[in-house]
Design a protein around this nucleic acid. Structure first.
Lengths: 221, 221
DNA sequence: ATCAACCGAACGACCGCTCAGTCAATTGCA
DNA sequence: TGCAATTGACTGAGCGGTCGTTCGGTTGAT
């Protein structure tokens, strides 16, 4: 709250006498790893700096050697999560380029990864109100990029089939996947409340998207 | 946090010597009205009891005459919002029974109400993690009820047209509207980020749902 | 005079953050 | 090699402040 300058996290802005930059990276990674589930479970405001320090394995004093203020931890965590989510989605969909997967399998894999990321996604939404505008925009761009990756992978695969009116389909898919992460959360809550399994949910999503792409609801493959 | 007994909010459990039940209702309504936007803007944990009391128009001491603890305010607010959202949606869709509206108009009205409710909806999600299980379930049931109302109104109207495979369409609509409130939030963020207006968003949604109901994307009316 | 309604100073707990100091490893000098 | 001196990393008691909550006292209508 006081050290607003350190909040932008440029490596030179570390408020410490510690000189070894390698150690700084290592310790910050420790902090992030330990903090993610604390934020998910208790929320940002209910998670204390002492909890963070203890979970990361050192004292409060040491925590403040590697971090300017509590908000810095939030930045680090968000940054880490953004990267992790995008990497996981990209990896899940990369198989679509080499023809290893069928269209249905790609959709399936995509939603499965989204499900595994659920806690992280939930955190992103939960904390988004505490982040300054430029970070909210960054988070949003990240979602859009993930949606783009998904749709591009889908259309690349679907291009092998017979799809009339591709532009129209693309619009529908974008509509269906806008802020896919937020939808995942909402959908997931509903399905779990109804005692459906996540597999049933994914099966439903797959069928639904295939129905959007192929007018008769049946893929050619 | 201490007064867990008062948290269930039965009218007899008021931790006060105040005798007039009518005044209690009046004051609690004042508290709720004043607190909603505080919770929306600052979040539950960052909103102090002093802020609540001041916004409601009396002192902290008086606040605790009508409320057992801070959490009680959260219960009251959630309860009020649940009712308000459902009432607004029901009212928006009630026109569909007497044939006053076209299908497109009903869809339009529905999403428009959802948009107006956006702040309240956001709050419901934001606080849902602090509520005990039975309240989370209550919130979820509320969402499902709203979805039901929407879909029933749609199908009642659509029944006047020529819709093949109604069961299938119903499933699609349910899928599209599951946890509609959560989707509203997500959709809205995306559209606002893209500098689309909410009207454009509603127009898109209307077209999309009509496309789901009528195979050729064109309603008969 | 009575008493429901209201007030706000005060309390205890806790939070983010600081800083004087410990400790072990390394360095400089004999 | 032996011995201070220095330094990077770490510590935790404590500071200043805020928060939820309490309680003794005031107010004003009856």
């Amino acid at each position: 709250m006081k050290n607003k300058i350190t909040a932008n996290l440029n490596a030179e802005g570390i408020p410490t006498q510690i000189k070894n930059p390698e150690l700084v990276r290592e310790r910050r990674r420790q902090i992030v790893d330990a903090t993610v589930h604390l934020f998910v479970e208790h929320g940002y405001h209910k998670t204390t700096t002492r909890m963070i320090a203890r979970a990361a394995g050192f004292s409060i004093g040491s925590l403040y050697e590697y971090v300017g203020c509590k908000e810095d931890v939030l930045y680090l965590v968000c940054e880490a999560i953004h990267g992790e989510v995008q990497r996981a989605v990209e990896e899940a969909l990369s198989g679509s380029g080499n023809g290893r997967s069928t269209l249905a399998e790609v959709i399936r894999e995509y939603f499965h990864v989204c499900d595994l990321m659920n806690d992280h996604i939930l955190l992103m939404y939960q904390v988004s109100q505490f982040l300054p505008k430029q970070w909210q925009i960054k988070a949003l761009e990240n979602e859009l990029r993930i949606t783009d990756i998904f749709i591009n992978a889908l259309l690349r695969l679907a291009g092998k089939g017979d799809i009339p009116d591709i532009d129209h389909k693309t619009a529908s898919l974008v509509g269906h996947n806008i802020s896919v992460l937020g939808q995942m959360w909402a959908f997931r809550r509903w399905y779990l409340a109804k005692n459906f399994s996540i597999d049933e949910y994914i099966a439903y999503q797959t069928k639904f998207i295939l129905g959007l792409v192929f007018q008769n609801g049946q893929p050619k493959e």
